[in-house]
Computed example of a mutant assay.
Amino acid sequence: MDSISFILIPQPDLSTHTVSRVVGVSSEAHYWASFDKKVWTGSDPIIRTLGGAAYHQENGSSAIRARYPITKLLNVFFTRALAARVSPHRVVVNTVTPGMCKTELARDLPVILRPLVWLMHTLLGFTAEQGSRQLIFGAVAEPAHPEKLHGQFIMGSKPTEPSDFVLSDLGKKSEELLWEEVVEILDKVDPKVKQVAEEYLARKI
């Protein structure tokens, strides 16, 4: 999976009761993530399944085409799982989409697709600076009541309902499984991760 990006994690000022923000970067592409029962209802962990050779051999090029929306879905899941484990009165966690921006992200697309991307950028695209405003919104908006943005998917400078799959019973189960898998993966890098997660990041809501 691609990286789960986060920005702006200031240290809380306990003397002034400042609320810190963690802003994840996702995309509206998560609405288009494909529903593959082998991934979401299988016995193997989600990331291991998506990254496994067997899954790609079985699904071929369709697995690659589906990768971007799925990684953005995982970003939403992880953000919601983290938000459920921290108090919004201390740390507000949300994820935003900057929208389609005119950048070099699509520079390696097949030549046949480039005219379509150019047209979409021309008609619908934002500049990178315009897209970055969404990240700033997630980091500073609702200064009097930042908890209103806690656990939210933000699009167009407002909290927006995520995909039906995210809100479904299976989606909620997948969110929990993904959290557990990420903790296990990180624990192999640093054995303290699981201990910290169990002590400080037990599910609260």
Rank of each mutant, 00 (worst) to 15 (best):
Y55T: 06
E129C: 01
E198P: 00
T41N: 14
W179V: 08
I112Y: 10
R203A: 10
P191H: 09
G131D: 13
F153D: 06
L201A: 12
I205M: 08
L177M: 11
L82T: 02
P159S: 11
M155S: 15
P115S: 06
P143H: 09
A139K: 02
S168V: 01
N94R: 02
A139N: 04
V25C: 04
V193A: 04
P69W: 04
M100Q: 10
G131F: 03
F78D: 01
Y68T: 09
V196L: 06
L14T: 08
S5R: 09
L167K: 05
G125D: 01
R65N: 06
W118F: 09
R85C: 07
D164G: 13
T122K: 11
K102E: 05
V92L: 02
W40Y: 15
R203I: 05
S157D: 14
D2W: 05
D36N: 15
S26G: 12
P159D: 12
D36G: 06
P159A: 12
S27P: 09
R85I: 07
D169I: 02
F35K: 07
V140I: 14
L109Q: 12
L8I: 09
S163Q: 06
A53I: 11
N75R: 07
K172F: 02
W118S: 11
P162R: 08
H56R: 15
V19C: 04
F35R: 11
A63I: 05
L113N: 04
L167S: 07
I9M: 12
F35W: 12
W118Y: 10
I154L: 12
F35I: 14
D13E: 13
L14P: 02
A53C: 00
V117D: 11
L149P: 03
F78C: 00
V96N: 06
L113W: 08
I47N: 00
I136P: 00
D169A: 13
V92K: 03
L170N: 08
R48T: 13
A197N: 03
A139V: 00
L105S: 12
V92W: 02
L14F: 11
R80F: 08
E198W: 00
G151K: 03
H121R: 05
L116E: 04
W118E: 07
F35P: 00
L116W: 08
A66Y: 04
A54P: 00
P12T: 14
P10S: 02
T41K: 14
E199H: 08
K192A: 14
E58P: 03
E104H: 06
F153A: 13
